[in-house]
Amino acid sequence: MTAAVTPADTRYRRGLELLTTVGGAAGAGFENGLADIAPGLARLTVEFAYGDVYDRPGLTLAQRQLINVAALTAMGTAAPQLRFHIDGALNVGVTPAEIVETIIHMSVYAGIPAALNGIAAAKLAFADHTDLADPVTTVAEPGDETARERYERGLEALGRIDGEAGEQVIAFTQVIAPDLGRYIIEFAFADVYSRPVLDLKTRELATVAACTALGTAAPQLRVHLHSLLNVGGTREEAVEAITQMAVYAGFPAALNGITAAREVFAARDAEAAAH
């Protein structure tokens, strides 16, 4: 007599299939590494992270892997897992250049040391994939652009991407730290956001994931939830990115992210109703 398949078995099988798709041989052998000490944690990871969260609609596997790379780079506390998800990104069709750009983008939100550590992990991963294309992205020099022109280009990008929420951030800095506001405009928006390879929606999904995972940037998370919606992202995509962070940064971080999302969605609904 054939044993009945339980819901837990279904979640496990679905999760193991997705884990293998993402992780390849490392994913298939994931449980073996924990079998001697925490087999329960291995099964919970397969069932919850992959059987439940990864199986949800709303984001592609490539998007899910890029936001993992962003969040783990920003957190800076999980180098082996960052390496695993860089490999996972490659396994589901993300290009080396997209991975590198996602890590560079994190220099704005988690600092240059975090980005340098992320690049070190990517370099090791790429070395094990000898068939990869060159990940180096060449950015055209702005020619004879003046400091004023760079500033104006960044200011235009900030207004287009962050809208009023971003402009309020810059206004806030003017009272005590106007140079900080200028650096945000020039470095974050004129330099980093203007780089090729990643579209603005991907950049904002990565930013929402990172700010959620960091757990220390609620005002900035609200700004970038607005930004994601401004550049064509949906509320569903925002919620999916935040929900996924429950796996990597814990439920408190995800719950705080959802609180921020609720506030942003309500504000946009109120604004729409007023018009």
Results as ranks from 00 to 15, higher is better:
residue 267 A to Y: 11
residue 231 V to N: 06
residue 71 A to W: 04
residue 206 A to N: 09
residue 241 A to H: 03
residue 241 A to E: 07
residue 241 A to W: 07
residue 138 T to F: 07
residue 34 L to P: 04
residue 161 I to V: 15
residue 106 M to T: 13
residue 269 D to M: 08
residue 226 H to A: 08
residue 231 V to A: 12
residue 215 G to V: 06
residue 35 A to P: 07
residue 25 A to H: 09
residue 240 E to R: 04
residue 185 I to N: 11
residue 27 G to N: 13
residue 236 E to P: 04
residue 256 N to D: 10
residue 159 G to H: 13
residue 54 Y to I: 04
residue 223 V to H: 03
residue 77 T to G: 10
residue 165 A to H: 06
residue 133 A to Y: 07
residue 234 T to I: 02
residue 208 V to G: 05
residue 206 A to K: 01
residue 151 Y to L: 12
residue 88 G to K: 08
residue 127 A to R: 12
residue 165 A to E: 12
residue 225 L to E: 00
residue 30 F to G: 07
residue 261 A to W: 04
residue 141 E to S: 09
residue 245 M to W: 01
residue 79 A to N: 09
residue 77 T to M: 03
residue 62 A to K: 14
residue 260 A to W: 11
residue 257 G to F: 05
residue 187 F to P: 13
residue 235 R to W: 08
residue 203 R to A: 05
residue 28 A to T: 04
residue 52 D to L: 12
residue 34 L to K: 04
residue 161 I to S: 02
residue 273 A to P: 02
residue 100 V to R: 13
residue 213 A to Q: 06
residue 260 A to R: 07
residue 125 A to F: 02
residue 96 P to F: 11
residue 16 L to K: 09
residue 155 L to C: 04
residue 203 R to H: 03
residue 186 E to P: 01
residue 264 V to K: 06
residue 112 I to S: 02
residue 227 S to N: 01
residue 134 D to A: 08
residue 36 D to P: 00
residue 61 L to G: 02
residue 128 D to Q: 15
residue 130 T to Y: 00
residue 139 V to P: 07
residue 8 A to N: 13
residue 8 A to D: 11
residue 262 R to V: 14
residue 11 R to T: 07
residue 92 V to Y: 06
residue 37 I to Q: 01
residue 38 A to Y: 04
residue 17 E to D: 10
residue 217 A to S: 15
residue 252 P to E: 08
residue 13 R to T: 12
residue 147 A to F: 10
residue 93 G to L: 07
residue 22 V to K: 03
residue 162 D to P: 00
residue 2 T to R: 09
residue 266 A to D: 15
residue 6 T to R: 09
residue 112 I to L: 15
residue 29 G to K: 04
residue 158 L to M: 12
residue 123 K to N: 12
residue 47 E to G: 09
residue 145 E to T: 12
residue 53 V to R: 02
residue 80 P to L: 10
residue 119 I to V: 15
residue 145 E to W: 05
residue 168 Q to F: 03
residue 56 R to N: 04
residue 25 A to G: 04
residue 11 R to W: 05
residue 246 A to G: 13
residue 233 G to V: 15
residue 266 A to F: 14
residue 152 E to I: 12
residue 24 G to S: 02
residue 174 Q to H: 06
residue 263 E to Q: 15
residue 171 A to V: 10
residue 53 V to I: 12
residue 94 V to K: 05
residue 263 E to F: 12
residue 156 E to G: 08
residue 215 G to N: 11
residue 88 G to S: 15
residue 100 V to E: 05
residue 125 A to V: 15
residue 47 E to I: 10
residue 115 A to V: 05
residue 229 L to C: 06
residue 9 D to Y: 03
residue 168 Q to L: 13
residue 40 G to V: 05
residue 206 A to C: 13
residue 39 P to S: 10
residue 135 P to D: 07
residue 68 N to S: 15
residue 238 A to E: 07
residue 117 N to K: 11
residue 257 G to T: 01
residue 31 E to G: 13
residue 271 E to T: 10
residue 63 Q to P: 05
residue 46 V to K: 11
residue 195 R to A: 06
residue 187 F to S: 12
residue 136 V to A: 08
residue 258 I to T: 14
